[in-house]
Amino acid sequence: MTSGISRRAFLKTSAVTAGSLVASGTLISKNSELKAAQPASEEPLVTLIDISKCIGCEACVEACREVNADQFPDPEKPFPKMYPTSTVPVEDWSDKTDVTDRLTPYNWLFIQQAQVMLDGDNVELNIPRRCMHCENPPCVKLCPWGALKQETNGLSRIDPDLCLGGAKCKTVCPWEIPQRQTGVGLYLDILPAFAGNGVMYKCNRCYQRLEKGQVPACIEVCPENVQIIGPRTQILEQAHALAKEMNGYIYGETENGGTHTIYVSPVPFDQLNQGIDTGKGKPHFQKVKNMMADGTLLAKAMIIAPFAGLFAAFGKYYLASREDKK
């Protein structure tokens, strides 16, 4: 089975890159083009997902599972007991690795179905869902331990050797993307009974492929060219042109202060949001405010703080010296 997908993935590469995507001009999808585009532009890379094109074949889901299989958890059982048992859930997906209808530690991309009205017809749209790769990712920034990092090309990823599985990244993620597997990782070597609970997993935008100048696997295998990847300005231009063309809508450009994933949909996202199943491992399409904005504002206020302190001390000294003169 594995080799079958590989062959398909391989064949697709040559077909897709030589074909329609390149013909449409600026789209960055051919491996060599991605390589050329990256160093030239200091900009982060952004993916564009054209929802109207996706047929829900799940080739991308399979490809993602295949290229990342070596990174999937391999938990030791039985799991060490974790205390207090009532507040520390055991999250075990190792017997449910074939689940593909939501995000799990073994499934970093899934196809979300939406029942919506389009031009008076009841239609079903398919939407590839995974980590949005936020511009200022709360998961990375708020991990109290540095287990995540953001790369200059805009992707964010969790280091499975460092993650302790406290799931703070999931709590602070506006889409609750990272998924936990108990019984793996660093916490086992520290105090498994009292701290940590496994490792969190999510799409890392195929960092290992990008390093080699290859596009992410899900982009490469898609028979419908649903996704493209390229420098931000270029992709944003493209997204707006596409939205205009289909009279459509954009998601991800401003959500959470901006993300490196732009969805273009023929129906408004609030309608899309009503047409999908949301819940655990199934992210929504709601409006999301910039989660890090308040912190950024306070950080700026911190610049004023020392001056306020100096001013207060000076004021006190000045008043005292005036008292003395009297």
């Binding site: 708020l142 308040d294 912190g295 306070l298 950080a299 206020a301 911190m302 004023i304 703080a305 020392p306 001056f307 306020a308 302190g309 100096l310 207060a312 001390a313 000076f314 006190k316 000294y317």
Partner: peptide, 21 residues
Amino acid sequence: HMIHYIFAGLLIGFAAYMVLD
């Protein structure tokens, strides 16, 4: 996170005050 930031600002202000004082 906000609380830590707010009190960090206060601490910085306080420290600056103490130094000049």
